[in-house]
């Protein structure tokens, strides 16, 4: 049976944002994965951003 795979030339390297279970599943398959320690944007940040958008 043919075993060739898509995109062989560029090995998959995954950045995972969200469910850590998905990152673990990829690691079990031998894939290089980095987890983003994501934080929700601060409400204040978006208010400042809007003010800056108005000013600039």
């Amino acid at each position: 049976m043919e075993k060739k795979r898509c995109c062989k030339v560029r090995r998959l390297k995954v950045v995972n944002i969200g469910l850590q279970g998905f990152a673990e599943s990829l690691r079990k398959q031998g894939v290089k994965v980095a987890q983003v320690n994501w934080r929700p944007p601060r409400k204040l940040d978006s208010e400042i951003k809007n003010l800056l958008d108005e000013l600039l």
Binding site: N16, I17, G18, F22, A23, A34
Partner: peptide, 24 residues
């Protein structure tokens, strides 16, 4: 479990990162 980033802003695609999986 290995590499982490504090934000997607810190990711350098030149290092070979070619897929971003999002479940937020």
């Amino acid at each position: 479990d290995g590499e982490t980033f504090n934000s997607i802003d810190d990711v350098d695609a030149a290092d070979g990162w070619n897929l971003c999986q999002i479940s937020l």
